[in-house]
Simulated scan of single mutants.
Amino acid sequence: MLEELFLSQRHTLVMTIARMVGCPHTAEDLAHEAYVRVSSAVSTRPILNLQTFLFQTARNLAIDHLRRERTRRRFMTNEVDSEAWMEVASTQPSPETQTMDGQRLAMFDAALSKLPQRARHILLLNKIHGMGYPEIAAQLGVSESTVYNDIRMALAHCLTAMMDKDAL
């Protein structure tokens, strides 16, 4: 019964929806969606006026479609002036930041070079390679307290060196 109604009213249904949404292809899709939804509803409960129910379902789908499109257009505009692009934050650091970071890295490298070799090696194993104190101690054949003390001393030395340079 629904299939016969849909086939006999399909053209009118599509034209009604097309007037609402302004696109015949979208209207075809919405008419098909209305058929599927009405078919599902018919299988769960009796519908007194099937034609009215079909057209109302199609109208509701068209209104929902128009709301989604209006929201999409509001947030997805293709028109952006060049000044707006200039206000978008860059993921790249500024040239000034790159220069300052390079200077800080050079200062840190200089501070590392002044550390005793074991302390520098332990600090790099811990901070760069992510090794824990027990693992470093086992690898180097020293106690965990030695690893702790070397890291503490190396960090304090680097911090002092960086603070002295920043104060200039």
Rank of each mutant, 00 (worst) to 15 (best):
T77W: 06
T77G: 11
N78I: 06
D81F: 08
M86D: 14
M86C: 05
V88D: 01
A89C: 03
S90H: 06
P93C: 05
S94W: 03
S94T: 15
S94I: 09
T97G: 00
T97Q: 15
T99C: 04
M100R: 14
G102V: 07
G102K: 09
G102D: 06
L105I: 02
L105F: 07
A106K: 12
M107S: 03
M107L: 14
M107H: 11
F108Y: 04
D109E: 15
D109W: 01
A110N: 14
A110Q: 13
A110M: 09
A110W: 01
A111K: 00
A111M: 05
L112G: 02
S113Y: 01
S113R: 15
K114W: 02
K114H: 07
P116T: 04
Q117M: 10
Q117K: 13
Q117V: 14
R118C: 05
R118W: 00
R120G: 00
R120I: 05
I122V: 15
L123E: 02
L124I: 15
N126M: 11
N126I: 03
N126A: 15
K127V: 09
I128Q: 11
H129P: 01
P134V: 03
P134S: 12
E135G: 02
E135S: 09
I136N: 02
I136P: 08
I136S: 03
A137Y: 01
L140Q: 10
G141M: 08
G141R: 06
G141E: 09
V142G: 06
V142F: 04
E144A: 05
T146K: 08
T146A: 15
V147M: 08
Y148R: 15
N149M: 10
R152S: 04
R152N: 03
R152K: 12
